[in-house]
């Protein structure tokens, strides 16, 4: 599709009209707010969906392991629940991201691709170490319970915190730090309890983050 072919030079004379400074300040604030909102894929609704997905996903695993004595690890049914919830989360983020960044090109696109590749490697490393722990004779409770849930979330939290700090995005830094704290604290709940603790903890953290996003949007919208 041609972007600007055949547009001519038909500038509306009314658009050349100068502004009163007060009106200009209002238009500037309003335009900035709209642009930032339009270009940012994050939203309170996305956080709410993530909170529900984490509660359902980790809850499904917890339901599948809570009656196991001795602990054997998540059942196929539990894993299907977790993977379905994770897929919903990933699909919703991809949809929102594509919508927000439509028409955007440049360095940030390449930076995001590099960050995605680094995160994928880090997550693969978590599962390689999990295999090494199983090979070394670690118990199922450690390998398929405490380690896999905590290590995955700590990697995601560390990645998010580093990314947020580099962008001076303090609410996201708070979210990522909270994810790491939930993951490390939940590790003390044991191989069965870790799943429930992670699910509830992440749900609360994401709901708090979503509420903060909604409040900030409302506040900046009122200012604009």
């Amino acid at each position: 599709m041609s972007d600007i072919s055949g547009t001519g030079n038909a500038a509306n004379e009314a658009d050349e009209g100068r502004l009163d400074p007060r009106e200009a300040a209002r238009l500037l604030a309003q335009t900035r707010w709209r642009a930032q909102r339009g270009l940012d894929f994050r939203s309170p609704w996305l956080s709410l969906l993530a909170a529900a997905a984490m509660l359902v996903g980790f809850g499904a695993i917890w339901l599948s392991v809570r009656g196991q004595h001795p602990y054997e690890g998540p059942t196929p049914v539990g894993l299907v629940g977790l993977y379905a919830a994770v897929l919903v989360r990933i699909a919703s983020v991809i949809y929102a991201h594509r919508r927000a960044t439509e028409g955007v090109t440049g360095r940030s696109v390449q930076r995001r691709q590099a960050e995605g590749a680094a995160l994928a490697v880090a997550l693969i490393v978590v599962y390689v170490v999990m295999a090494a722990l199983a090979h070394a004779g670690a118990s199922d409770g450690v390998v398929y319970g405490v380690y896999v849930s905590s290590a995955t979330l700590i990697v995601l939290g560390t990645f998010g915190a580093a990314r947020a700090a580099a962008r001076e995005d303090w609410p996201s830094l708070g979210l990522s730090t909270a994810v790491m704290l939930v993951a490390s604290g939940s590790a003390f709940a044991g191989p069965r309890g870790v799943w429930l603790s992670d699910g509830v903890g992440l749900c609360v953290v994401l709901l708090g983050y979503g509420t903060l996003q909604a409040w900030r949007r409302h506040a900046s919208g009122s200012d604009a």
């Binding site: 900035r32 270009l39 439509e102 955007v104 090109t105 440049g106 360095r107 940030s108």
Partner: peptide, 9 residues
């Protein structure tokens, strides 16, 4: 509002 180094269609 775009990140530094980015362009918009």
């Amino acid at each position: 509002a775009l990140p530094e180094g980015d362009a918009l269609s």
